[in-house]
Amino acid sequence: MTIIDEAPVLSAPANLRGLGGIAIEGGVLRHGMAIRTDDLALVTEGVADELVAGGLTVIVDLRSNDEVAITGRGPLGTRPVAYHHIALMADVGASMPAVDREWRFTHEAMGESYVAMTETAAPALVTALNVIAYAPGATAFHCAAGRDRTGVLAAVLLLALGASDDDIVADYARTAPNMPGIMRRTRGVMGPLLARLGVDEEAMQRSLPDGPMDVSMRIMLGTLRDRHGDPLAPLRAAGLSDDTIARLRAKAIAA
Rank of each mutant, 00 (worst) to 15 (best):
D167P: 05
L232K: 07
R184E: 13
V52M: 03
Y134P: 01
T106W: 15
N65C: 04
P212S: 14
G137P: 04
A14H: 11
A163I: 10
L40A: 09
I35S: 00
G146A: 01
P180D: 08
A237L: 13
D210M: 14
G146N: 01
A237E: 14
G77H: 03
L221P: 10
V28N: 06
V156F: 10
F105L: 13
R73Y: 08
V189L: 07
V92I: 15
N65L: 09
D100F: 06
D171C: 03
G229R: 12
L19Y: 10
G46E: 15
P8I: 04
Y114F: 14
L88K: 00
V169D: 13
P177Q: 09
P80V: 03
M217P: 04
L161A: 05
I3Q: 09
M117D: 08
M117C: 15
M183Q: 12
G18T: 11
A109G: 15
G18K: 04
T139S: 02
P180Y: 07
P8M: 03
R174Y: 02
E45L: 12
G74W: 00
G32P: 14
K251W: 08
Y83C: 00
G229L: 11
Y83D: 00
L235T: 01
L29T: 03
G20E: 07
L88P: 01
R104D: 13
L157H: 06
A109T: 08
P192W: 07
H31Q: 12
V92D: 07
P192K: 05
A116I: 02
R147G: 10
P177K: 10
L19A: 04
R79H: 10
A138F: 02
D166T: 10
A69Y: 01
V28G: 01
V115G: 13
T106P: 10
G74C: 05
G188F: 00
A94L: 11
A14P: 03
H228S: 10
G93C: 08
P123S: 02
E50T: 15
Y172E: 07
P177G: 04
M89C: 12
A254K: 14
V52I: 09
N130M: 01
L221V: 02
R247S: 07
R36K: 12
L62K: 01
F105M: 13
H107V: 05
A250R: 15
T106G: 13
F141M: 05
E201I: 15
D49Q: 12
T2G: 10
P231M: 13
P123A: 02
D214C: 03
L159E: 12
G77W: 01
D226W: 09
L232Y: 12
A69L: 11
S241W: 03
V60L: 01
D166N: 13
T127R: 05
V131H: 00
G46K: 10
E67Q: 02
M179N: 07
L159V: 03
G188Q: 15
V43M: 04
D166A: 14
Y134Q: 13
E202T: 14
T44R: 08
T37F: 00
T244C: 14
T127E: 02
M204A: 14
E102P: 06
A53P: 09
I24V: 14
R17A: 14
A246K: 03
E45N: 14
E25H: 13
L193Y: 05
V58L: 04
D5W: 07
A82T: 06
R249W: 08
T223L: 11
G46Y: 01
I168S: 05
T44A: 07
G26D: 09
